[in-house]
Amino acid sequence: MDSALVCQDISLLRRGWEGSQRAVLKNVSAVFKAGQVAIISGPTGAGKSTLLHILAGLLRPSQGQVLADNRPVSRWNTAHRDRWRRKVGIVFQHPRLLNELTVLENVILPIIPRVSSIARLRQRGYEALESLGISHLAGQPGFALSGGEQQRVSIARAIVSQPEILIADEPTAHQDETGAAAIIHRLTEWKRPNTITIIAAHDARLRRHSDFADRQFELRCGGLKELQ
C-alpha cells in the first residue's frame, strides 16, 4: 500500500482577544499521497502555515487527527511524535537560522543526534548545500547572508536528513528567477515514489511549472478545497 499523510477533520481553535475562540482551521480533510507534490495556496492569514505545522507534527489540532501510514501520529505521546518527526523535513516561512552558527552548522542541526561521526556529519551537510549550489557559503555565519541565501540554507537543512515527508512554507520567497528555478529544480529532483511533498505557496512561479505540482489545494476561511 502506498504511504500517505492524511488530515481527518482537523480543526484548530485559537484564543483571541477578550477570551473568545477563533477557528483558524475548520474540519480540514485531505490525503497527501507518496510520490506527489501538493501545493496549498490561499490568501494571507488563511491558515496555510498553521496547517503545515500540524502536518509536520509541530502543533496538535484541537480536533481531528493526522494519520501517517494509517497511524494517528498527532495523537501520539511526545516521545513517539518526536521520533516520527525525524521523517519530516520542514522549511519555515522565515529561515530561522541560528545566527551565531555557521551555515554548515545550521544545516547539520537535524542530524546531529543520529550520525555517528563528525566527518559523516560534515559530508552530509556539504552534500545538502551542494545540491542547492551554495556550498561556498558553508563557513559563513548565518547573519552575513541575504534573505534569499538564508532561505536556501533552510531548504538544505530540511533535506539533509533525507526525509520521507517534505513540508515547505513559501520556499521560493526572497528568491530571484534563478534562485527560484534552482529550488524548483531541486524539489522536482526530490520527488520520489516514497516521498510526500507539501508546499504552501503564493508564488505563481511554482504553480506555473506543470510538471512540478501534482495536486493543488486552496485554503480559504479555514476550509481546504482541492483545485482541479
Partner: peptide
Amino acid sequence: SAASRQIRLERAAE
C-alpha cells in the same frame, strides 16, 4: 474519539 475533549485530555495525560 478525535473530539476536542479527548485531544485535550490526551495532552493533559502526558
